[in-house]
Amino acid sequence: MEILFAIIIGVLYAAGIYMILRRSLVKLIIGIILLGNGANLLIFLLGRITEGAPPIIPEESKVFLEAYADPVPQALILTAIVISFGLQSFAIILVKRAHKVVKTDDLDEMNATDEDS
């Protein structure tokens, strides 16, 4: 399964970068989201994946009795997911705002107006 994971991550990274390289603003945001998902999965994979052993101490015990998934990457990713929501919404609004002001969806043209004004 690790190999499948690696392929998924590769596909997400490739798709993310490809979308970021487009000139359209909406595609840029989608690219960032895909890239973020890829990064989350990468951290998850590098922390080693474990099946069926969530890092939750059993009801009757005070410590872990069996193997468990590493909680640190999970905590990292959890915050990353939530933060990425903040980032996405901010980026979306920025795009909307920019579109309204400059009236173009072409990143290259935005660059041009910036220099002329």
């Binding site: 690696a6 991550i9 590769g10 990274y13 490739a14 970068i17 390289l21 994979l45 590098l46 080693r48």
Partner: peptide, 17 residues
Amino acid sequence: LSLTFGGLISLLALQVL
């Protein structure tokens, strides 16, 4: 370019594993 990059990331991930 992006496919190369994605492939590289996959390989890196496997290497780290």
